[in-house]
Computed example of a mutant assay.
Amino acid sequence: MKRDKDALTLTRRIGVFGGTFDPIHIGHLVAAQNAMHAAALDQVLFVVANQPWQKEGTREVTDPKLRLLVVSQVLRTIPGLEPSDIEIQRGGLSYSIDTLNELRASHPNDELFLVVGADAASQMPTWERAEELSTLARLVIVNRYGYPTISSILDFDQPILAEMPWLDISSTDLRERVRDHRPLQFLLPETAIEAIELYQLYRNRENG
């Protein structure tokens, strides 16, 4: 955090980490923590997608308010990581460009950092109005150990690279584990496991 001498306000470095989080798992938390360290972020917002456009028509997605509830319960005791319902409040399909524009308007004195995994970074040229993203935020790419390093994308100036351990965890596999009554311990935070049990998520339908 730094002080803006002209505005006499504290400028925060805010990471914007979007996702379906269906469900949130250890890999998400490790990615956020490594991004926070690499980019010296004051805060990382876990932006829960309302309707993720990439998954439109591919599978049934859990109600966004339930996904947000689980994310909120998981993050409540982790300093610096905060849930965000900005895309849920906006409604409709969720696009990063709309979220960054809205956050820029509400945080005019702060620096925004778009946090993406290397797999998502490689797909960024296909995103809605992708050419505008670099005008709103700096890019933080979280590279997984053992995967090729992506060091540049679109028009972003010197993306910040954060490397995380190789954790082969996927939300698809976790949903299948719930349906098959297989172990979830150490793959999900205990609070997420408790919430999945409490709300009976992923039990009786195919999630892809």
Rank of each mutant, 00 (worst) to 15 (best):
D4Q: 06
I88C: 02
P52C: 06
R177F: 00
R205V: 06
E111T: 09
D6I: 14
T58M: 09
S96L: 13
S106W: 09
L154T: 11
P108C: 12
D6E: 14
L198D: 13
E190F: 08
R205A: 03
R144Q: 13
T11S: 10
T191P: 08
A121R: 00
A192E: 05
F113R: 00
E194S: 12
F17Y: 05
E87W: 02
L41M: 12
T77A: 07
T77W: 00
V74W: 03
L154C: 13
A121L: 10
N34G: 08
A40S: 14
G80F: 06
S122H: 08
P159K: 00
Y147P: 01
I78G: 03
T191F: 02
H37L: 14
N34L: 11
Q51E: 12
R177D: 04
D110V: 10
Q43W: 10
F186S: 09
P83N: 01
Q43L: 15
G117Q: 04
L114P: 03
Q89A: 12
R144C: 08
R59W: 10
N34T: 11
E132F: 07
G117I: 05
E111N: 11
G80T: 07
A39G: 13
T58I: 02
R90K: 08
V44W: 01
L100W: 00
S106G: 10
A39K: 07
T62L: 09
L81A: 04
